[in-house]
């Protein structure tokens, strides 16, 4: 039973502190005496969920409630104040496509830099290089500097690197809307295969279409409530209800 779990999040809480960061801030506060120099913002409170191996899990809800923070905690960039996160397998994040890309480097060099940052071995990148380029469809552009690429082309290149990164769990933050329809279909297909082979996906999204035809389960988070884990149909219903309630429709 335990073996089916790819990811377990138990009771995590997180608050952010806002501190004065420079002499200027401190001096200004000294004279204005407006408010206390530190204030806290509670972002996450007792959040728990578990994700089954080979499934796609969605976290949805309004902006600014800490959905991306959850992904950062799972990835291990931010530490939760309380609670534990257990991951079984290698985690790769797709929260910012092309992090570490540089406009003056050629596409080829960016593949190696970004691929390495994503946790690939250089030897692995060398063997898959042709496949990455084929997947991205950027064949003749690959030796031009990245600044000559369109946004769509950059996203395609970044996505193709992820596609050939070995991982057990992929974290996705609102980035599936890349490229044209054809490339988007390719991405979705790629993730379906990834799932079929036992890979796990955790995504943050507002895109009901993607949630509907791609995810298996999910939770809804807002500033005051965290829903229990539910299936996609209920999740979308809940989301729509909330939106209607808050916008007074």
């Amino acid at each position: 039973m335990k073996n089916n779990i790819a990811l377990e999040v138990q009771n995590i809480s997180k608050k952010f502190e806002f501190k004065n960061k420079s002499l200027k801030d401190i001096l200004l506060n000294l004279f204005t005496k407006k408010e206390k120099s530190t204030s806290n913002q509670v972002v996450l409170k007792n959040i728990s969920f578990s994700v089954k191996k080979g499934s796609a899990f969605c976290i949805t809800g309004p902006n600014g409630v800490g959905k991306s923070t959850i992904l950062s905690i799972i990835l291990g960039i931010i530490k939760a104040d309380q609670g534990t996160v257990k991951t079984f397998g290698k985690v790769v994040a797709m929260n910012e496509l092309g992090g570490g890309f540089h406009p003056d480097l050629t596409g080829r060099d960016n593949v190696f830099v970004n691929g390495r940052l994503m946790g690939n071995r250089l030897s692995n990148l060398k063997t898959h290089f042709d496949d990455i380029i084929a997947f991205s469809g950027l064949n003749e552009f690959i030796d031009r500097p990245l600044r000559t690429y369109s946004n769509g082309m950059i996203a395609r290149l970044a996505f193709s690197i992820i596609a050939f990164t070995t991982a057990d769990i992929i974290l996705i933050d609102e980035v599936l809307a890349v490229g044209d329809e054809q490339f988007r279909k390719k991405c979705i297909n790629h993730f379906r295969n990834f799932k079929k082979n036992g890979g796990t996906i955790v995504m943050v999204s507002h895109d009901l279409g993607i949630i509907n035809n791609f995810c298996d389960e999910g939770i809804y988070i807002s500033s005051n409530i965290v829903s229990p884990k539910m299936n996609t149909k209920d999740l979308i219903e809940k989301y729509i209800n909330k939106v209607e309630y808050h916008s007074g429709l």
Binding site: S72, L75, G76, I77, V91, A93, N95, E96, G99, G100, L117, M118, G119
Partner: peptide, 9 residues
């Protein structure tokens, strides 16, 4: 900042 905030290295 992207390397610090977004990527685990």
């Amino acid at each position: 900042t992207t390397l610090v905030k977004r990527i685990k290295i």
